[in-house]
Design a protein around this nucleic acid. Structure first.
Length: 295
DNA sequence: GTCCGTCAAGCAGGC
DNA sequence: GCCTGCTTGACGGAC
């Protein structure tokens, strides 16, 4: 099914079976404990290395690092120069990922709102995106991806999209890695592609979000729009795959991937190559259903 | 020792 | 207007 790397798979942030994570953190009030903070960052980077080795042995060629790799890195209260302190470790981890052939990503969360009309909110979001950019730069991760939602709509989506483009256009360092992802409530796959195109960056179609917010497009039509946006960057297109947890509200991720959702994605791809990030509560366990040996 | 509510941050939407 | 979910480990306080 996955011959010739038509499809490569990955999962985010942690490995349940090892168990290992890149997301150890601490409370903001504990940031003053510099020794402990440095230890947490080192453990996260060590966790990343362990996961990379484990993944490579099983042919898992994508991994999303947790946003807390360096906890509070973009916060004004962060107490030391983390790029100087951890640059060497990050460079070595990046070398490892390159040697193993694993593509990295990060996904800043719902608080990152570059198009917010509130200047402070927008500025903090940009700072977080700079942090991700510095991590990738230090790691030498040229094909890495910063995955971001456009954010709120503020009751005026065209105006907000224009503001997003205006705010992000000067951020050329961030744009080198940035890709925009559709969400399940506000920004459709079509709108996300349009906004990404205006910035000259690629778009990611998330299959579950698209099901909930399709705006009349089939998954195939959405992919027809988003896949070509990756040509300019010269890297493989990225997608997100997840299944609905039937017992929870729409948008909640299930533990594993429903075979119907997998088939629907393959059908929509129709032979085109893609890097597929599998967003499931079961993390690496969810890849078992796709023929990956996970133990 | 275990359990539980809360923790930096922003939004949309349901009530 | 208030509450919830998004994600998930940390951690203090209650018991």
């Amino acid at each position: 099914m996955y011959t010739r790397m038509m499809i490569r798979l990955g999962y985010p942030a942690q490995n349940l079976g090892l168990p290992e994570t890149t997301n150890r953190t601490l409370r903001l009030a504990s940031l003053i404990d510099v020794d402990r903070l440095k230890g947490i960052v080192r453990k996260n980077i060590a966790g990343l290395r362990n996961i990379l080795h484990w993944n490579a042995e099983r042919g898992i060629w994508l991994f999303r690092m947790g946003q807390d790799l360096v906890p509070f890195a973009s916060h004004p209260a962060f107490p030391y120069d983390w790029t100087a302190e951890h640059g060497g470790e990050l460079r070595e981890a990046g070398e490892l990922a390159r040697t193993l052939g694993i593509r990295l990503s990060m996904h800043p969360g719902q608080y990152i709102q570059p198009a917010s009309p509130r200047p402070g909110v927008a500025a903090r979001g940009i700072e977080e995106l700079r942090y991700v950019t510095r991590v990738f730069d230090l790691m030498g991760a040229e094909d890495a991806v910063t995955v971001l939602h456009i954010g709120g709509g503020y009751g005026d989506k065209p105006g907000t999209a224009a503001r997003f483009v205006e705010v992000m256009s000067p951020q050329t360092e961030i744009l080198r890695y940035l890709a925009l992802e559709n969400d399940e409530r506000v920004w459709t796959a079509f709108e996300t592609v349009e906004t990404a195109r205006s910035l000259g960056i690629p778009a990611i179609t998330d299959s579950l979000h698209h099901n909930l917010n399709p705006d009349g497009l089939s998954l195939r039509e959405a992919l027809d729009l988003s896949l070509p946006t990756w040509e300019k960057r010269g890297t493989r297109p990225k997608l997100h795959l997840s299944s609905q947890d039937r017992e929870k509200r729409p948008g909640a991720h299930a533990y594993s991937i429903d075979s119907l959702d997998l088939e629907a994605l393959f059908s929509a791809l129709d032979g085109r190559e893609a890097d597929v990030m599998v967003e499931a509560k079961g993390k690496e366990q969810a890849l078992a259903a796709m023929g990956v040996r996970v133990r």
